[in-house]
């Protein structure tokens, strides 16, 4: 690690003003991804702002029936919280599908959203990467791109977002709450992460001077009909090749509302609201799910080593929808 200065802050205002005033300053909370990247010199902050002393650890019910998840609540605290397990089991399962028990004890909710891609070229300083070093090129484009994106990528970047939690939050239509110099705002999950376009160095629409303070879950948690299905190279402690988060509202075998997000396939959790609507009023059956899966992969474009992901994504979608609606495979 390269030398940096460090300060523990005790207030949100102090954190935000330090972000603004100190050059190359980064927030540290759990640190499980930031320190990893600092060791390999992919991220080189000059100043770290330790926010662990802020009061952002609570998980509590919101007026109107939703849930508030503090930015500093750990991934483990969140996944095992009775209100999350009971009302948002999709989120609980998605969190527990990611990382290891040790990492989930340390990693925070805010940090989970802001973790960087695990593209091997991003991590390797000896290769070109537009995300790490703008305008240096993308070595993944013609490299070993088995883990890479099949949707929403650009010629500048084909990296995927690694979070499982974010995929569930996208399906749940959560909002990210952030505070910046101009006050607080909430950002829908659909707009939080962004596509790489021609500036893949920017992962999200969070401003550089903003601090995530929490996540808001809407009242509907799809606790009756949900699935988080993650396909990966080993059964545990591995990033997704493809993952699917599904929440269904059903009456009998009829789908009233469907929320579906794909992970491991794009620079952000992938949702196609128009395709979700195709299921409304329809019977839960394999044929209708196949229609959705085709619509979700519309416009997909694979690379030399990840062509399998298009079919895998479609089949994982169908299977997750079957699971969520309690249909036998």
């Amino acid at each position: 690690m390269k030398p940096f200065s460090y300060q523990k802050v005790m207030g949100i205002t102090e954190a935000v003003s330090d972000l603004k005033e100190k050059n190359q300053s980064y927030i540290i909370a759990g640190g499980t991804n930031l320190l990893d990247l600092m060791k390999v010199h992919v991220m080189q902050p000059q100043h770290l702002i330790d926010i662990n002393g802020l009061k952002l650890h609570d998980i509590s019910e919101r007026d109107g029936g939703g849930l508030h998840l503090g930015a500093l609540a750990s991934n483990a605290q969140t996944a095992y919280h009775p209100l999350v397990e009971g009302r948002y089991p999709l989120l609980s399962q998605a969190i527990l599908a990611g990382a290891s028990a040790q990492l989930r004890n340390k990693a925070t909710n805010g940090g989970n959203l802001l973790q960087r891609t695990r593209c091997s070229y991003f991590y390797d300083n000896s290769t070109s990467c537009n995300k790490r070093e703008p305008e240096s090129g993308c070595a993944a484009l013609h490299g070993y791109n088995r883990d890479h994106a099949i949707l929403g990528h650009s010629e500048h970047c084909i990296a995927t977002h690694p979070s499982d939690m974010a995929v569930a939050l996208a399906a749940l239509e959560a909002r990210v709450v952030a505070t910046g110099p101009d006050g607080a705002r909430s950002i829908p999950m659909a707009d939080f992460h962004r596509l790489p376009s021609n500036n893949p160095q920017v992962d999200s629409n969070l401003e550089a001077e903003e601090l995530i303070t929490g996540i808001q879950l809407p009242p509907e948690g799809f606790a009756e009909h949900y699935a988080y299905l993650k396909v990966r190279d080993r059964a545990s402690y591995s990033f997704a090749l493809v993952s699917v988060a599904v929440g269904l509202r059903m009456e009998g075998n009829t789908i009233l509302k469907a929320r579906v997000a794909l992970g491991g396939v794009a620079h952000k959790p992938w949702r196609v609201p128009g395709a979700e609507e195709l299921l409304e009023g329809k019977e839960a059956d394999r044929e209708n799910f196949k229609v959705l899966s085709e619509a979700y992969l519309t416009g997909s474009e694979a690379f030399k080593h990840n062509k399998f992901k298009i079919k895998l994504a479609k089949q994982t979608l169908v299977r997750a929808l079957m699971q969520a609606s309690n249909l036998k495979l």
């Binding site: 540290i28 759990g30 640190g31 320190l35 990893d36 662990n52 990492l103």
Partner: peptide
């Protein structure tokens, strides 16, 4: 339980 390699002593 945590990974002691991924946290700073000062924290």
């Amino acid at each position: 339980r945590i990974n002691s390699c991924l946290t700073l002593a000062v924290m």
